[in-house]
Every structure is written in structure tokens, then in C-alpha cells.
Design a protein around this nucleic acid. Structure first.
Lengths: 181, 181
DNA sequence: ACAAACATGTAACCAGTTACATGATTCA
DNA sequence: TGAATCATGTAACTGGTTACATGTTTGT
């Protein structure tokens, strides 16, 4: 697990679907992986430059002046497989909402209701976004080998969002019971 | 949202329950908030030193030689309330398992089954740990004002873990169908 | 006597965000 | 003609982990 492995993996994987500019890599990650992955320009451009010096990606001139379309080399694809087989790292959790709720009696039930209500709203929005993504993905031809995998990750998001909503409803009720016993 | 706000909040909140050594703060965070928060010594000790110079915590000598028991001052409690009322920051998501699954056709369905199977195991273990935490917390006197809040965060973990298990089962079936159609 | 747990702290490193600086192209 | 989007890149900063270095106390 050397340096910037995580970003390398995400970038190489994105390029494995199609050659792209750095801008497009960021866009693709945001729209397709947004609910479980994130990369900023400040990571992507240096990573791309490094991968290039390592011979893992090559560039062609893009349609616009100054744009570079990055493409995986054979070595790049081999590296991608290598990284894919490494154990998945999970970033240590940091949920500011749950932290505040745990110490909820410092701010009181009313403030906690706001906190949980907001989390519920976010989950509802997330669910709507995933429904749209699902429709789009299901419209892809069934022969597309990636299609099944994309749907699995969408389903993961849906399960998580539904669980959040169910928990929020239960918790809002408990908080109400707390204020008016 | 100035510097190290997140760690300050976690540390001040921990101290609001009871005065503690830095070591105990880390331990308390790990055992009680482990499923949604994390702090390392490398964060806690400098934070404690800083909070002390800011007059937000005071220290007494602990039972062991060299140990310092940190205690919230009035200013510290005020700062805690202030931080609690700030909007909850959510760390950008980075789920290595879902990233790999999204690009699953690079490594194939078999490798993906292993990935998802491991995630399922982790969720099962998590659920068991939460069941233990729930038993302990439910044993606390019902008058303890924190008890209800602690149970809410435990419930959040349970909902999430159950959702993970349900998703993993569904996904393992889909992956099996993919290999033997 | 020894291991495990308690306890404190620093230094090096890495990962990641944000803001900045710059410019081309498309479209209303 | 101006706004939005496409496009690239750097620099400063911050947040955080890990490893190291050190020592005490408790329990077996």
C-alpha cells in the first residue's frame, strides 16, 4: 500500500472504461461514484502526471486546445488489476451528526430533532438521485459487462439510504417522546 | 469552522461526561463511539495541550505518577455547546469495497464475491458488538439523561449493519447468477 | 519476573481540500 | 457579449495516521 494508491486506483479504473481528460475523470467519479467515492482536481492532476511518468497512462491531444485525453497503457491495466486485488482500505469513520447525537443532552432534544431531520432529508435526496442513476443504468444494454456491477453499487446506496430514513423516523419519534413524556 | 474543531469537539464532549486522562479519552472514544468516530493519540494529546492553554480544560494529578486528569472548565463547557451547534461536517466518502465492486468486471465475479463476503462478515461482527453495547447501555438507570441518546446512536449502527447484511446477501446471489447463468 | 495495560508525548509523513491562476469553447 | 462549462495546473494548508521513544503500574 504505497503512496496515493487509492487515488491511483480510482483514476486508473475510470480510464479503464474509456480514455478521458482529467476534468472528465473528476466528473465521472463525481457522477458515478459520488455516493461512495470522492476525488478533487488537486489529487487527480498530480496523479495523472505521475502515472504518465510511470508509463501507466499515455496522452493524446484532445478536441480542445491544451486538453489531454489520457489512455491506459498495457502496464497501466496490469497495475489496475494489481491495485484492485489489494485489500480494500476503509477510511476511519467520522460522522459529525452521530457524534453530536451521542452527546445530545448537551444541546437538548429539540436541537437533536433538527440534526436527525436534516440527515433524513439528505437520505431522501440521496434515494432520489439513486433512483435516477438506476433508471439510466438499467437502460444500458444487458450485454454490457459493467452493467450488473454498477447496479450492485447503486443497490448498496439504496439500502443505506433506506436504513437511514427508517432510523431517522424511529429516532425522531424517540426524541419527541423525550420532550413530551 | 476553525482548526481542529472536530477533534476539539470530540475531546471536550468526552470530558463533559467525566474528567479523564488523555489515554482514557482515546479509550472512551474507541469503545463508545468506535462505529462512527475515531481519534488517535497523535491528535488527542496535542489537542488536550492546546485546550489547556486556551483555558478550556484544567488538569489534576492522576493516581499514577505523571498522569493528568483533564477536566472541563466553565469556558470549556461553553465552547463545547458552541461546537455542538455548528453544522455537522461529513467527511467525503471513500469506500474501497464499493469502488472495487463498481469496476468489478476487471477482477471478475469470484473476486467480487470474496469482497462482498468480507463486508458481510464485518457487518455481522459489528451487529454483535452493537448488541453487547445495547445490553450494557440498557442496564444503565433510566434516569441517566444520556442513556436515550446513547441508544439512538447504537440503533443507527444496527440499522446500518442490518442494511449491509441484506445488501450483501442480495449481491452475493446476483454475483452467483453472474457466474452460472 | 514478566506481560499487559496504563500513560504521555513527538516527529515524520501522507492524504486530501481549497483557493488561486489561467485560459478556451460553447451556447443563449 | 457574457455566462457557463470545459480544461489544466500549483501552492498553501490542515487534518490525520503511524511509528517511535519512554516510563509506570497492575496482575499473574
Amino acid at each position: 500500500m504505497p503512496r496515493a494508491t487509492q487515488t491511483d486506483l480510482a483514476v486508473l479504473a475510470a480510464l479503464s472504461v474509456a480514455p478521458m481528460t482529467g476534468y472528465a475523470v473528476r466528473d465521472a467519479i463525481r457522477t458515478h461514484l459520488g455516493s461512495f467515492w470522492n476525488e478533487s482536481f488537486g489529487q487527480i492532476y498530480p496523479a495523472l502526471a505521475r502515472l504518465r511518468t510511470e508509463g501507466l497512462v499515455e496522452v493524446d491531444a484532445g478536441e480542445r486546445t491544451g486538453s489531454s485525453v489520457h489512455r491506459l497503457t498495457a502496464a497501466g491495466r496490469a497495475r489496475l488489476v494489481e491495485l484492485m486485488r489489494e485489500p480494500a482500505v476503509m477510511t476511519p469513520p467520522r460522522n459529525g451528526m452521530l457524534l453530536r447525537l451521542f452527546f445530545g443532552d448537551v444541546i437538548g432534544a429539540e436541537a437533536c430533532r433538527a440534526l436527525v431531520g436534516e440527515a433524513r432529508e439528505q437520505a431522501v435526496a440521496q434515494l432520489a438521485a439513486l433512483a435516477a442513476a438506476r433508471r439510466e443504468t438499467e437502460a444500458e444494454p444487458a450485454e454490457l459487462p459493467q452493467r450488473a456491477y454498477w447496479l450492485m453499487t447503486i443497490s448498496a446506496g439504496e439500502h443505506t439510504a433506506r436504513a437511514s430514513i427508517a432510523w431517522a423516523d424511529e429516532t425522531l419519534a424517540a426524541l419527541t417522546a423525550l420532550t413530551a413524556p
